[in-house]
Computed example of a mutant assay.
Amino acid sequence: MIETIDEAGIAVLRLNHGPVNALDLELLAALPGALADVAGAPAVVLTGAGRCFSAGVDLKRIVDGGPAYVAEFLPALSTAALALFDHPRPTVAAVNGHALAGGCVLAAACDVRLMSAGTIGLTELAAGVPFPTVPLEIMRHAAGPVADRLVLTADTVDPAAAHAAGLVGAVVAPEELLGEAVRRAGRLAATPADVYALSKEQLHRPTRQRIDAGRPLDDPRVLELWSSPATHAVLREFLASLARR
């Protein structure tokens, strides 16, 4: 589900979960543990197996599992994203293909993002579901003013447009992506660990404060909407429209 590989001393976590690395409860539950297992590594690279980084939430599981599954899934999504966002050592996303919705959020939770192929964006509103506080604030931190457009239009963009918007730091040829991500992670890891961790904490503090203030207000409403019969009807139609393409 998550493969751990040592590349020149850097821990590479590779999502390997089905054809598009869709985010379900099991994958999200595994990510914090995988990060804890490599806590001693100087840096972490997150990438995907196959043709996708991650195509986002497994919406079929949401529909099939109903409110009980949603009640477990949404907290797991926030916990996984925060585990990556809060990881004290350098984190680099090697976006090897589509990074959509929750997949985009996981990439955004990393300190540096490199991209070689596919599209990246936030498709939640196209599917008819709102954002929990944690993913939304992580996107605001990573994308700045561009986050408004990404959220409200559900647009997806190619690597060049993502770079122009500042969503990714560089566009890299597919055959060079992992090597470049490892090299950049190694350069970041040259900073003393305690200095890097404190600097990262300082940069993330405004986001963490917004998360702490917003979750009690917003997350109950998000859970209600994700669980509603009307939302699940929209999700079924959205899935059917994808199948027709």
Rank of each mutant, 00 (worst) to 15 (best):
S54V: 00
N96W: 02
G97C: 07
V70G: 03
T91A: 03
T123M: 11
G66D: 13
A127M: 11
C52R: 05
R61C: 03
P145C: 03
T79R: 14
F131C: 12
R140A: 12
A108M: 10
A108Y: 11
H87A: 10
S78K: 01
I62F: 02
L84R: 13
C110K: 07
V129T: 01
G103W: 09
A55F: 06
G102H: 02
C110H: 07
L82E: 15
A83P: 12
S116F: 02
L125I: 12
A71I: 04
A109S: 15
S54G: 04
R113V: 08
A71V: 07
I120P: 01
L114I: 02
L114H: 00
F53I: 05
R89Q: 10
P90R: 00
T79F: 10
T79L: 11
L74C: 01
V95N: 04
A68C: 08
P90T: 03
A117C: 04
N96A: 03
P88Q: 00
F73A: 04
A101Q: 09
A80Q: 15
A71D: 15
K60L: 06
A76F: 09
T79Y: 06
A143V: 00
H141Y: 13
G144E: 09
V129E: 05
G97S: 07
P90Y: 11
A127L: 05
S54H: 09
F85Q: 14
R89T: 10
V57D: 13
A55V: 08
G128C: 03
D64E: 10
P135V: 07
V105A: 06
E124S: 08
V92Y: 12
L100N: 05
A126G: 15
A126H: 10
V146F: 13
P67D: 11
A80D: 15
A83M: 14
P90D: 05
G144Q: 06
V63H: 02
I120V: 14
R113I: 07
M115D: 01
V112Y: 04
T79W: 04
I120H: 02
D58V: 00
S54K: 05
A99Q: 13
A93V: 06
A127D: 06
I62H: 05
A143Y: 15
I62S: 03
L59K: 00
A76P: 13
F85P: 13
L114E: 02
V92G: 07
A68N: 13
R61D: 14
D111Q: 09
A127Q: 04
L125A: 12
T91I: 10
A71N: 12
L122A: 07
I138V: 14
G103E: 13
H87R: 10
C104V: 00
A143C: 09
G66Q: 11
E72C: 03
L74V: 06
A109V: 12
L106K: 09
V63N: 01
A76S: 11
L125K: 15
G65Q: 02
F53K: 07
V92P: 05
A142W: 06
C52Y: 11
L100P: 09
D86T: 00
P132F: 01
A109T: 09
M139W: 00
P145I: 08
A117F: 02
S78G: 14
A101P: 11
G97V: 00
A126R: 15
A117W: 03
D111N: 10
D64S: 05
L82V: 12
D58Q: 12
P75I: 06
A93S: 08
T123C: 11
G56P: 08
P88E: 10
T91V: 13
A76D: 14
V63F: 01
V129Q: 05
G118Y: 01
A142C: 10
S54Y: 01
T123G: 14
S54D: 04
